[in-house]
Amino acid sequence: MSTTRAAPASSSRRAAPERGRSGGDDRRLTWRNRLYRFDMRYMPYLMIAPFFLLFVVFGLFPLLFNAVVSLRNYRLDDPTLPYWAGVENFSRLFGDEDFWNALYNTFGIFLLSSVPQLLLALVVASLLNRKLRAQTWWRVGVLLPYVTPIVASTMVFSVFFSRDFGMANWVLGLFGLGGADDPIDWRADKLHSWIAIATMVNWKWIGYNALLYLAAMQSIPRDVYEAAAIDGAGPWKQLWRITVPMIQPVVLFTVILSTIGGLQLFTEPMLFDPNAQAATGGPNGEWQTIAQLIYKVGWKDLNLGYAAAMSWALFLIILIVAGVNYLVTNRLSGGRK
């Protein structure tokens, strides 16, 4: 029986020369063949199994289970409520002023951060794309903000944007804006707090995006630029007419990335607030984002069911906005279709 089983495997190149030896070797051979067959057939699955197992348990399952939780009354402080809530958590969403306010803030901060971020990244990338001395060091340098913990940098910017003695107001004062007599209170209204938070986001991600653009720019064939000489395109025109359309896939990629990241903004608005633990994003929710509101609803108000419903809403919003941004960018950056 063992010989028949070994037959298909022994026709393989590895086992073939070992044939026709003594009986003891034969038994070892079949054992080896089984091992070989197991190795060929099942080893690949064993190798990908840890990834899928861990990913399903801690990544995919929570995401799906979130849907169940969103249909439940899940309050950490009141387990006596009826198990199912139906769509109550979702219908409550529509009348929830906090939610619409947070949505408004999230979009505001997103616009103020993503647009300048990507435009400046383009400019920085086109500068890095020149022949530079100490090329590597410039590239490493723009990554300083990328490796800096957002928690740490937000603390620094929080101080920059303080009303009295803040660096931001002092610099603006040098240009005759605000100044010591009439300092800007960066935490007093929506627009100013949005600008402050957007500045942190821009600071963090310009260099990273610039490197993504740079990588794409370097793979543009050189003759494309030679051809453009005929029209006498200067560097600025070159950037917009040739470079950007040529790196369009990466531009779209960064737009999607910054949409996904920007709409989930959490750390910056949390720690910009001197009263961070409350997670209200300012005394009147001036800069409370959706991610922050989810945190507040879930872990301050202890209403996990409602927080789960909000997460789903955010997911949908991200999908829609990412789709719209994709189409818009596709148009603006010279897509052919």
């Binding site: 929570p62 995401l63 289970f65 989930q264 996990l304 997460s311 997911f315």
Partner: peptide, 14 residues
């Protein structure tokens, strides 16, 4: 492309 933050409530329960 799935934002993992969105499963955070359920992750906490798990």
């Amino acid at each position: 492309t799935v934002p993992n933050q969105l499963g955070i409530v359920a992750l906490y329960i798990v």
